[in-house]
């Protein structure tokens, strides 16, 4: 069995974001980066399936971006993936979801992957398009937003997360692509021995130009910080003083404190 896991490296969402000089993306300097949280569940599920099937599946992890995405790929290798493919693209942030999907599809099309995992969306852009689009470009069965995954004898049974805590149960045969929702499993932390082992694993670099032929289909016209609604009271300073002021405000403005 051959498995592909697609991961994205994203800035820490706690960061302070600044608009770049051309006003069409955020400034990527001075940000701390990490693996997209949704994708961590994809890596973990692929590695769990590999373990379940007696180490048989061969797991490739792929990421698109500048040199820094190597860190996310190394983490995925340390979690248990067998080889990394780094599609080198210094300008991946501004590529449209369709272009990103077309690059992945171009890489995957003649590799015979039985199963492809992606996150259900990225934490920075959140379009929720890339996984499904890859599946459509490859003509694959695709189920999104999985919070439960089981695979036996080439058949997947999964639970899709719907609104309000409800789930939809689906069943389909491989080959297929699934997109992972938060809570699908508990992603492991790489151990030190596995981090050392990961350094010896195959790491392939492919220039994006070899895989990209698609037009963007959508473009970002302008990027900006939202206008502050204002009006809210901001309390800062001494803890006891803030607590007094907050209780005063609540007595004044709400009927819940007497």
């Amino acid at each position: 069995m051959k498995i592909l896991v697609c991961i994205k490296q994203i800035p820490d969402m706690e960061s302070r974001f600044k608009v770049n000089g051309t006003g069409d993306w955020y400034d990527e300097a001075d940000l701390a980066y990490r693996m997209n949280e949704y994708d961590e569940y994809g890596v973990e599920q692929a590695v769990q399936l590999k373990e379940q099937l007696g180490n048989d599946p061969d797991v490739t992890v792929l990421s698109i971006g500048s040199d820094r995405v190597g860190e996310a790929l190394k983490k995925a290798l340390a979690m248990g993936c067998d080889r990394a493919v780094h599609v080198q693209d210094a300008d991946s942030g501004r590529k449209s979801p369709y272009q990103i999907a077309s690059v992945i599809a171009a890489f995957a099309k003649d590799k015979g992957f039985d199963l492809i995992f992606t996150g259900m969306q990225s934490q920075d852009r959140g379009s929720a398009q890339v996984g499904v689009t890859v599946a459509e470009l490859l003509g694959r069965t695709c189920a999104t937003t999985l919070v439960d995954f089981a695979c036996a004898d080439g058949v997947v049974t999964g639970k899709r997360e719907l609104e309000g805590g409800m789930k939809g149960v689906v069943k389909f045969a491989l080959p297929a692509l699934v997109t992972c929702q938060l809570g699908l499993n508990i992603p492991r932390y790489p151990t030190l021995p596995n981090i050392m082992k990961a350094k010896k694993k195959e790491f392939v670099v492919v220039p994006v130009a070899e895989l990209l032929a698609a037009e963007p289909m959508t473009v970002t016209e302008k990027l900006y910080a939202p206008t502050k609604k204002g009006g809210g009271i901001v309390l800062e300073g001494d803890m006891a003083d803030m607590a007094d002021r907050l209780v005063g405000i609540l007595k004044d403005k709400t009927a819940v404190l007497r």
Binding site: M13, Y26, R125, L223, Y224, A225
Partner: peptide, 15 residues
């Protein structure tokens, strides 16, 4: 559309 956990906004034009 909103991005980065609501910290940024952008306008997007389809082809």
């Amino acid at each position: 559309v909103s991005l980065c956990n609501g910290k940024l906004r952008r306008t997007v034009a389809p082809q």
